[in-house]
Simulated assay, not measured.
Amino acid sequence: MNRLKLVMKGQKKEMRLHYLQHVPFENPGSILIWARENGHVITHTQLYEQDTLPKQQDFDWLVVMGGPMNIYEEENYPWLADEKVFIREAIAAGKVIIGLCLGGQLIADVIGGKVTQNPCKEIGWFPVRLSEKVRSTSLFAFFPEQPVVFEWHGDTFSVLPEDAECIAENDACKHQAFIYKKRVFGFQFHLENTSAIIKDLVENCGEEMIPDAYVQTSEELLAHPEYIEQNNQWMELFLTRLEKMYREDVL
C-alpha cells in the first residue's frame, strides 16, 4: 500500500482512493480517469483473485464496484463475508465511500437495509428522478431532474434504514440512490461506465438480457456514446465537488 505523503507548502496532500473489484470486466472506469488526472493515489483489491484487503489507515476514499453476483451468495463467493466486515469498518472509520450497483447493495446490507430481487430486471439506458431536496445541494445541483443513466441489475436495496436518505427513484426501481451519514453514497446505476466496460458487460453477462419491459437489446446499450459521455461528465462533477467538500471538512 502507498503511504500518505506530505507535500510542499501550497500543494494539497495526496488523496488515496482504494477500490474493491468483484470481476475482471467491471472496473471504476471514469472514476479512475478522474483520479489519475487529479494526481490521486490509486490502489485496489481484486476480490476474485483472493487479494488481501488493506488496513483502514491506508486509504481515504473507498469505491465498491458492481458485479454479477448477489450479496447473499457467500457460499459461492466466500470473500463477500470479509468484504461486508471491511465496508462496515470503513463506515465506522468515517471514510468517504461510493458504492455502485452491487457495491451500493453491499453498503445497504451492512447499514441495516435489505437487498432483494427487484420486481423487474433493469438493463439499459433509463431516466431516474432525483429528489428536489438533493438537487438543491451543491453536490448534486448540476444534475437535471431526470438524468438518463446506465442500469444493469436484478436485485436492489429495497429497504433502507431510517438514517439513509433515498435521493433517486424511477418506475422500475423504487430506490435508485441513497446517502448515509453525509459521506457514504450508494448508487443502483452506473455513471462510471465507459464504452469498453459496457461492451464487456454485454460479452460476459449477455445471457441476462432476456427481453422485458426494462431490458434493452445489446444494440441499444451500445448505440448511445452521447449518454456515456454525459454520464462520465456527471461522475466527474460529482467527484470534484465531493473532493472539495471533503478537503474543506464540510461532509
Rank of each mutant, 00 (worst) to 15 (best):
D109N: 15
I91L: 10
I71S: 07
I197K: 05
A168T: 01
E192V: 01
P28Y: 03
I167K: 05
K133H: 12
K84F: 05
Q233N: 09
N193A: 15
Q117I: 09
A172K: 01
D212S: 15
S158H: 09
E49N: 15
L80F: 04
L20I: 07
K182F: 06
K114Y: 14
P211I: 02
Y19E: 08
T45H: 03
F238M: 04
Y72H: 10
L20P: 02
R183I: 14
G99T: 02
C166R: 07
L130S: 14
E145V: 08
Q57R: 13
F178L: 04
G39P: 00
M245R: 13
W234A: 11
E83S: 00
S30V: 03
A172R: 01
V159H: 11
D163H: 08
G99V: 00
L139I: 00
A81W: 00
L222H: 04
G10V: 14
L47R: 03
Q11N: 11
H224L: 02
P161F: 10
F157A: 11
K5L: 08
E151H: 15
K133W: 11
L222S: 01
R88I: 05
P225H: 00
L100A: 15
A141T: 14
L251P: 06
E229M: 02
D171V: 13
F142N: 10
M235Y: 12
F86Y: 10
V250S: 14
N204Y: 13
L106V: 07
E203I: 02
Q176K: 13
E192F: 07
C205V: 09
W61N: 01
L242Y: 01
E49W: 10
P78G: 02
M8W: 05
G112V: 11
H153K: 09
V41G: 06
L80Q: 05
E26K: 10
Q11T: 15
A177H: 03
K55V: 09
V96C: 10
W79S: 04
E248I: 05
E207Q: 12
E74K: 02
G66E: 09
W234V: 08
Q50H: 09
E49M: 13
Q11E: 11
N204V: 02
V215Y: 05
K133S: 14
A172D: 03
